[in-house]
């Protein structure tokens, strides 16, 4: 749930989603779901002259499973907060396992 919540805080930001077919799609993050499926608005495919396949698409749903990276705007991210959230996220599950 950590990254689902994290991406929800980035709605409205410009991100570049790099897919496992080497396409990169830049756009405004509109929504994200529990599978980390991503929806972008006002998209632009990098190197459009070589990749005209989505020319008529402005608004796009990207399946989470095909994402390799998401390039994020550093200014929109509080890294200290993120690290704290990551420590909290991982603690309960491991504690539960140890207690078993």
């Amino acid at each position: 749930m950590l990254f689902y919540s994290f991406f929800k805080t980035l709605v409205g930001q410009a991100v570049t989603v790099e897919l496992k077919n080497d396409l990169s799609v830049t756009g405004t993050l509109v929504s994200v779901d529990q599978f980390l499926n991503i929806k972008l608005d006002n998209i632009r495919v990098d190197n459009e002259s070589e990749n005209p396949h989505m020319m008529s698409v402005k608004n796009c749903f990207i399946r989470g499973s095909v994402v390799r990276y998401v390039h994020l705007p550093p200014a929109a991210i509080d890294t200290a907060l993120l690290q704290d959230a990551a420590r909290r996220e991982i603690q309960p599950s491991t504690a539960a396992v140890r207690g078993a």
């Binding site: 950590l2 990254f3 994290f6 496992k20 980390l36 994020l72 550093p74 991210i77 890294t79 993120l82 690290q83 959230a85 990551a86 996220e89 991982i90 599950s93």
Partner: peptide
């Protein structure tokens, strides 16, 4: 996978090894 390597500062991860690196 795909002969890629990253070096960076770890800001977050989860049990799937999804990560945010800086």
């Amino acid at each position: 996978r795909g002969d890629r390597e990253l070096r960076g500062k770890l800001h977050a991860f989860d049990q799937h090894l999804n990560m945010v690196l800086g």
